[in-house]
Simulated scan of single mutants.
Amino acid sequence: MKSPAISSKGLSLKNIKNSKAFQKATDMGPFSIMVHKEVADHIRSWRFMILIGLVVLTFFASMYVSLSNIKNAVNNINDPDRFFLYLKLLTTTDNTLPPFHVFLNFLGPLLGISLGFDAINAEQNGGTLTRLMAQPVYRDNLLLSKFVSALIVVSVLFLSLALLMMGGGLIITGVRMEPQEFLRILAFVFISVVYVAFWLSLSILLSVIFKQAATSALTAIGIWLFFTVFYQIVVNIIIRAFFPDTDFLTQAQIQAYNELVLTFYRLSPGQLYSDATTTLLMPSVRSLGPLTMEQLIGAIPSPLSFTQSLLIVWPQVSGLTAATVVCFALSYYLFMRREIRS
């Protein structure tokens, strides 16, 4: 008579556990479940492992070069940024390898493209999109989960590397970090995430437009190569066609010419990211445009505060954020109007 009671008790406890697990999953909501699933898929994918290996490898290589030359950088009395030791770890180089933020300018777009070029078309080609839409799941939740999950992975990666750099610098040098340095490094991580988010939203947009993942990947890589390699060449050719000879221009005209060239350069996401990171990691940078002799006279070469540097880079951050929002809004509009068939 005891065994049936025990078995029935065990069965009831198992049912209670199952009901609690089901209730927990129900309370999370479909969006949270999809985000957890997408994060797990990104972490387990081989392409993400390869890219994270490249990012970590370049990070350690840049840190090794910076630590090897940090003594010369700190002892350089002509450098107004020599007191910012932890910022020097991200910017010091001996010209054998570029600094880490220059590496991110190159690897960040590849990271964003690899995480989003097959976000929608792979689901549709695999036949899982129709089965997923048959469930009580909104379309915007599906698209947003693809975007948010990739941003979570990238944010954790960049933040972990920044904390690793801080901890390693503290152990090796024994110098206490200033609050301004900590804020600047966090701002650098934030801008890096926004920069990757732009390429992620662009790749998701291309995955909505094109049916084949290879087409969307090649198109995204082509856009990245255009802005990285050919964009400045095209701008210089167009500008020189309108200004064939700058030798006979006045000082005001030369300044207007340089400002026009910089304005066209800043239509490139890479240029916006480079300007923002350079200003944040080098507090002595006081302007991102050409300065006249009247503006330079009496100026003392001293580092700016964090708020002043943030005001300088605010247009660049706003531009990257706006471009990201526009790309994601277009992908949202196109995906909501798409007819999904089996």
Rank of each mutant, 00 (worst) to 15 (best):
Met133Asn: 06
Val137Trp: 01
Tyr138Glu: 15
Phe83Glu: 15
Phe117His: 15
Leu151His: 11
Thr93Arg: 14
Gly116Ala: 06
Phe106Ser: 07
Leu87Gln: 10
Asn78Met: 01
Val137Thr: 03
Leu163Gln: 10
Ser145Gly: 05
Ala119Arg: 04
Pro109Met: 10
Ser145Cys: 13
Leu159Lys: 11
Ala122His: 15
Ala150Ser: 14
Ala150Gln: 05
Asn95Asp: 12
Phe158His: 06
Gly108Phe: 11
Val153Ser: 00
Glu123Cys: 04
Val102Met: 15
Gly108His: 05
Leu110Arg: 02
Phe158Leu: 13
Phe147Met: 13
Phe100Ala: 07
Leu129Arg: 03
Val154Ser: 12
Phe83Lys: 15
Ala122Tyr: 12
Gly116Val: 00
Pro99Lys: 03
Leu129Tyr: 03
Pro109Asp: 09
Gln135Asp: 00
Leu144Ser: 08
Leu107Thr: 09
Asp118Pro: 08
Leu144Glu: 03
Leu104Lys: 09
Leu159Cys: 09
Phe147Ala: 11
Phe147Gln: 06
Leu97Arg: 04
Lys88Ala: 02
Leu89Asp: 06
Phe103Gln: 06
Ala134Met: 15
Thr128Glu: 04
Phe147Leu: 13
Gly108Asn: 11
Asp94Pro: 03
Ser114Phe: 12
Ile113Lys: 05
Arg82Gln: 02
Phe117Cys: 10
Pro99Tyr: 05
Tyr86Ile: 00
Thr128Lys: 09
Leu142Gln: 01
Thr128Val: 09
Ala150Gly: 03
Leu107Ala: 02
Val102Asn: 15
Val137Gly: 02
Leu159Val: 11
Asn141Val: 01
Leu110Trp: 04
Thr130Arg: 12
Met133Ala: 06
Val156Arg: 03
Ala134Asn: 02
Arg131Phe: 10
Val156Phe: 03
Val153Ile: 12
Leu151Trp: 05
Phe84Lys: 08
